[in-house]
Amino acid sequence: MKFERKDLLGLEELSRGEIEFILETAGSFVEISERPIKKVPVLRGLTVVNLFSEPSTRTRISFELAEKRLSADTVNITASSSSVVKGETLKDTAKNIEAMNIDMLVVRHNAPGAPHYLADVLHCPVINAGDGPHEHPTQALLDLLTVKQKRGTFEGLNVTIIGDILHSRVARSDIWGFTKLGAAVTVCGPPTLIPPDIESTGVTVSYDLEEVIPRSDILMLLRIQTERLKECFFPSIREYSDFFGLDSAKLERAKPDVLIMHPGPLNRGVEITPEVADGPRSVILDQVRYGLAVRMAVLYLLSGGELKSEDSD
C-alpha cells in the first residue's frame, strides 16, 4: 500500500485502508522521539510553511516539532504577522506562497474549505490543520492512534464524544475516523450544540451523559467555548458542567478500563474536573505524544515527489 494523495484535507474522503496505513506509518514514527538524537534526515532540504490564520498553540507546535524532527526547514506565518488579517485574499496568499517555491503547506483557517481552496491552486501538498468547524484530520488521526496503541482494535468499541459538536472540527473528523474503523460513535451534548442531521453520519445522539457513560469505552471531551454562552446555546457554565462536565462522581459508573480523551486545551472545572483530567484513566498526554508521530507520518507520506512513470520500487 502507498499513500496516493497529494493533500490531507479531511478524514471524510479517506478510505479505511488509507487511515490504517497512516496509523501504521505513525506507529513507526513513535520511537524516533525516544531516541537520543530525535531527528531523522528524511525531509532535509524541504521547506514547510505553517500558515495559521487563527490562534493555535498546541497544533502549531506539534507540527513544527514534527517538521523539525524530520529535518525540514520551517516557516511560521501566524494571524498576527501575516497579511491574512490585513485583508489580503486567500488567492493572493496562495500566489505568494507559491512564488516562494515551498514544498509543503500546513494550514489552519477559520473558513471551512479554505485548505481545499489552497490545495486546488497550489502544486505542493496541503495539510489541513483545522478549517473552521469542518475537519481537523491530524487531530482525529492522533486520537485513533492513541486508541489503537491502548486498545489494539476499534471493532466493538463505543466512543462517546461530549460537548459542542456543532462547532467542532475535531468531532467531525473523529466521527469519520472512528466509524470507518469499526467503532460505534455517540455524540452527547445539549440539543442546541448537536448539528442537524448528524445521525446521517452513522452516529447515535444522546442528551444524557449519565446514561451513555456506563457503555462507553472512550469518553472524548471537547472544549466548551465560553462565547457560546452569549449566543444562548446554554444558560450557564454551572448548568453545563452539571449536565455535561465529567467529574469523579459521573466516572464511578464508567467501565473500569474507560479511556478519557480531550483534544485540548482543557477548561479545567468546566467540561472536565482536574482529578479526572489527571487521573489514571486519562490518556490526554498520550494524545499529545502520538500527535507528534501522526504529524511526522503525514508529513513523510505527503512529501513524495510528482508521480513519475519510471518510478522504481
Binding site: S28, V40, L70, S312
Partner: peptide, 23 residues
C-alpha cells in the same frame, strides 16, 4: 534497523516507501 528515513533517493521516488519500526 529501518533505514527508509535515511535513504538518499527519497526525493526521486514518487510515493514514499513504507516505513518499518526501528528497534
Amino acid at each position: 534497523l529501518d533505514i527508509t528515513l535515511y535513504r538518499d533517493d527519497l526525493q526521486l521516488v514518487s510515493k514514499q516507501p513504507v516505513v518499518g519500526k526501528t528497534d
